[in-house]
Each structure stands twice: as structure tokens, then as C-alpha cells.
Design a protein around this nucleic acid. Sequence first.
DNA 1: CTGAAAGCGCTTACAG
DNA 2: CTGAAAGCGCTTACAG
Lengths: 338, 338
Amino acid sequence: MLLTIKDIARISGCAVSTVSRALNDHPDVNPETKERICRIVKEYNYCPNRNAKFLKQSSGKNVLLIAKGNVNLFFTPILEQLQSSAGKKGLSVTVSYISENDNEITEAFRLCEEMKPIGIIFLGGNVCIFQRDFSKLTIPCVLCTAYAGKLGFENLSSVSVNDFQGGKAAAAKLCELGHRRIGILSGDNKSAGPFCERFSGICNALSEYGINEAERFTEICEFSFRSAYEKAYKLILEHSDLTAVIAMSDIIAIGAVRAFCDMKLKIPDDISVIGFDGLELADFYTPRITTFHQPVEKLADISVKMLVEMIENNDEASHILLDAEYVSGETTKERGIL
Amino acid sequence: MLLTIKDIARISGCAVSTVSRALNDHPDVNPETKERICRIVKEYNYCPNRNAKFLKQSSGKNVLLIAKGNVNLFFTPILEQLQSSAGKKGLSVTVSYISENDNEITEAFRLCEEMKPIGIIFLGGNVCIFQRDFSKLTIPCVLCTAYAGKLGFENLSSVSVNDFQGGKAAAAKLCELGHRRIGILSGDNKSAGPFCERFSGICNALSEYGINEAERFTEICEFSFRSAYEKAYKLILEHSDLTAVIAMSDIIAIGAVRAFCDMKLKIPDDISVIGFDGLELADFYTPRITTFHQPVEKLADISVKMLVEMIENNDEASHILLDAEYVSGETTKERGIL
DNA sequence: CTGAAAGCGCTTACAG
DNA sequence: CTGAAAGCGCTTACAG
């Protein structure tokens, strides 16, 4: 049986309330008393029951981190950085992993009641769900990896790469290399969000290079190697004259590269591929994936910084866009002279 | 403000205790009352506060799932399968992710007090920590992906691949292809656990093929692309005559393949590489990684089945070893005639 | 600076 | 089958 706060009170000869105050760093407790209590706590390896704590607690230093879709190679390093960055600011973070199909706002709302956090960081999230449901939440929140500036909520900041510019730069890069028959392997770009932004950016660049809508060949794929593989295969079967493909994430790029290899297409001689995200994996794949890197550390650090400033200084919501950084790889080259 | 059970009681005209019983499927509640309560619960979107629930609850259908080291591509699919498999058995699972450096037993013990689960599944875990600390836990537990048979705890079952046989088969495969100068890229094989088992298996096979200890070239790497890359590089620099490498996981194999490419070694013409785990990624890498696949679905399903039987039938602990399945890829071939 | 007491939202004997 | 009441382990006004 684990010890309770009552046991610690008994052993230390204090009241339960004094132990609680000592443990939670309240100012009005005698330093000697506090030290004695802490010693006993350590000696007996006492650990407060979080259910009871959260049931009562109205405030604290707890920050909630809601990660949507944890299967994601891209989110894992951000998550680690978020945790370490929040830790340095003296915040204790509780992470909740939810699946791609869950409603992040509903989950956040429930956890707010349970944990009474002072702020929330969403790692990933569906902008449409935010638009519809976010008003339920009244504490400071930050959306990390998607732009929430268009939503206009007073307590919702966001930090992400400029996905429009990133998409545009990726397409421009291929056009500069002389490619004109370019396929697009997109994530779901129907509803607002990063894929939609990237898609707009890509189209914008293609237009500037005089490639009109009739010459854009797009397949929508799920966020998996297999789906990307299948859609890449289909794209080439239907448009054998493509010389380049833009994949909206490195996962998709890898699925595509594998498909092209199986079709006996040489990369980058027969076809160029450009990815997005700049995963560590992209750098260890053969061939190295040419990609646009999302600055993971910055995304995480800025998220935490924004949240802290909203909480402590009552700063109003702001929306920061970072540049995705071009990473040269082995999957792109100039279009061969046909 | 979220609704509490009191609100539901007031709205439905019942007592709080009746609402509680209805919600928790207790037998002794009038079907009509129950239906009315459930309708109201749904209509008002009521969701019980888990802190309060767990604070009181002495039993239930809660199963705890402790996943150690969530950065792991191998664990993610097992985790998903475990959740779906447990869901089908009518168990509600709570997942706790802990880092590689945490003590899984300490964490389990704390959560037992808080959640009062009826059983625990550990996804991954350090056998040495189990040996030292597991006796603290008295409820049925299953260790998934490592063998706990040597530990002899009455309430700890385990299911894993036969890592010794897997390692042995991997080494034998290379020997059969004519390789005699074989490098080993190992995870930490100093303390008991899968890497240690695989290492023993590898050594056993090499001995059987007459390759003595002086001809085994081993580097220990961390579980990352980068570490594997560096150690693979080092291995070749120091032993340029190696014709094959056994990597103890696909992550390590991929780091090695990338390193060999950068050293201008052709795979598999100049050097063969064999991995372990059978990640989806291994099948989408170019070249496809030859590997030994851990049967993810079986590992998960058996874990749940074992736990349920320990709980419901009071079955005693058992330890199941599955075979790792050979998956032919593009990174192995016969040793060239020198 | 400290203690006694109320109460967070639930569950579960106990009584009817 | 249902309700009133105790209590889970904490935190926090309130009094001193």
C-alpha cells in the first residue's frame, strides 16, 4: 500500500494541510518544517495521488500537451523538444495522445475539467475542428504545426512553417530544374490546414511558370508508405511522361521512391522526387530525399514561449510563420534533354 | 462547466448512486431507469470525471498499458493492435508512455494506486529492472516483446519472439550464403534482454559454422540511425574485409546501409546486410532490407489473451516464444568469389 | 506560520 | 430496485 499524505503528516508531526503546502511550494511555511517534511517524503518515497490532486486543484503549473496522431515520425522529435523546453520553464506537462479520428477540442475540454491546466499546446490538429469547437476553451492555447491566424480566437496562438511558401518553393525548385510535367502526391487538401496551404503554394508556383491547371496531375493519398506507393504507381501509369513529383511529406516521398524503383525508373535520372518535413529518416534513406525541413526545435521552443507569455503577461494571441528550409538530397536533378 | 453526476441525477430524478450504477452496468438497476439515464447522459454529453472515478474505484475493467520508449517504430503497430485487441475483449485500456530511462515498475506501482487496474501489459521493458523490482506488483501482468520465463514470478507472463533462435537464424543465413567475415551491429547486449539473446544466438550459429571468437567483429550502437551509421562506418574502416553485417534491428540496418552507400560499397554485391524486426519501413527502403519479422499481431493478441486468462480463470503465468519470420529482401546475396 | 474542516466528483457498502 | 451517507486523497479558504 502506498503512503498517503496522512501518513506523512503523522510521521512528521504536522497537519495534513501543512504537508500539502510544503509539497506545493507555498510561501507561507516555515523553512525548517518544510525541510523536515521533504526529507521524510524522500525517505519514504512518498508520491502524491494525482487523481486526488487534480480532483481538487484549481490551478498549478500544469500544462496540457495534446498530440494528435502519434504514429507520426514528424511529431515525435517535436514532442520531445516540447517537453524539454516546457520543463526548463518550470512547467509540468501532461501529455495526452489522441488518434487522428478523435476530436482534440472535446478531449482538451474534458481534460481541463480534470486537470485544471493553465494552458494547452496542441501538437497537430484539424483547423476545421478548431474553427467549429475551439470557443469552448477559454485558457491560453497554442497550436503547433498549423496556422490558426485566420480563425481569430483571442486565446489561440499558433506557430508553423509557412506551408504556402514551402509548397511554392518546392514546385519552383522543380520548375527551375526544367521540369514541366510534374505530379503532385498530396495529403488531404480538401479542408483547411497544412496540406491545403502547400497545395495552394504549389499551384501558385506552377502558374507562375506557365504550367496551367490542365497540366497538374494530382493524387490524394493517406499518410502512409503503402498508400503513397499505390498512388505514385497509379500516377505514373496514367501519366508516363512525368519527370518530377512533389510529395507533401517525406513519408509520401519514400513510398513514391520505392514505387518508382519497382517500376524500374531511375531516380533522379528518369524522375525527380521532392519531399516535405525533413525527417531524420529522409537523410538516411537511399537515395537521400530532397526535402524542405521544418525547424523542429524552433517550432517547439516558440510554442512554449508563446504559451508562457500568454499566461504570465496576458499577451494576446499571435501567429508565427517560420520558413521551411531547403535540404538538398539525391532525388532531384535537371530534367534530362528528351 | 462540465456536468457532474449530480446534474444527471437531478435531471433524471434519480439518486446519484443510481446514476452511478446505471453508468457502470451494475446488474441491479431497473432497465427503464437505466435507459432514461443513458438517454440523458447522451443528450447532455455527460462524461464522468476520471479523477473522481479512479480515486474511489476499487475494481473495474481497466487495464493498464505501459509502453516504454515511445520513439520506437516497432512498438507503434503493436500498441495499436494491443488497444484494438483489448477493446474487443471488453477491457478499457489506459496507456501510459514512459521514456527509456524511467523505471517501468515504479510507474506501474504508482498507477496501480491511482487507477486500480485489474492487469497490466508492459510493451517493452528492461528484464533487469523486472528482476529487481517486479515483486512490488501483485496483479496479473504480461511482458510483451521480452522473455520473462527465467524470472519466475507467479503473476508475470511474457510473450516474445525467440530472440536466441532469431539471432541464430540470421547468422546461419549469412553463413549459408558463404560469408565468413561477418560484422555484428548490436544494441546493448550487456544486460539480459532481447539484444543479449540475439547476440548469444548469433554467436552460437557462428560457432557451428566454425567461425571462432577471434573472427567476430562487434560494435555496440544506440538505437538510432545516426549511431548505427557511425558504428557501421567504424566497423568497415577497421575490418575492410567484412562481406556481411548482422544488424540487431532494422533501424540499425538502415543506418548501416546508408553508411555503406556513402563508402561506395555496393549492396549486396560488396556487402550483405541483414536486419531484425521486419518494420514496414524495411519493406519500403531501397534496397529492401532482408530481415526477420516479429509477428506484431500475434504478439499483441496473445498478450491480451494471456492477461484475460490470468484474470478470469486465475491461470498461472506462462511464457510463449514465437518464431521470427524470415523476410527476403534486397540486401543479402552469396559472397562473391574473391 | 499552522491546524481543523469542507469539499472536489465519484463509488459502494448499508438500509430499506 | 433505489436512496442517503461515508469516504477515496488531496487542496484551500478560514481561523487562530
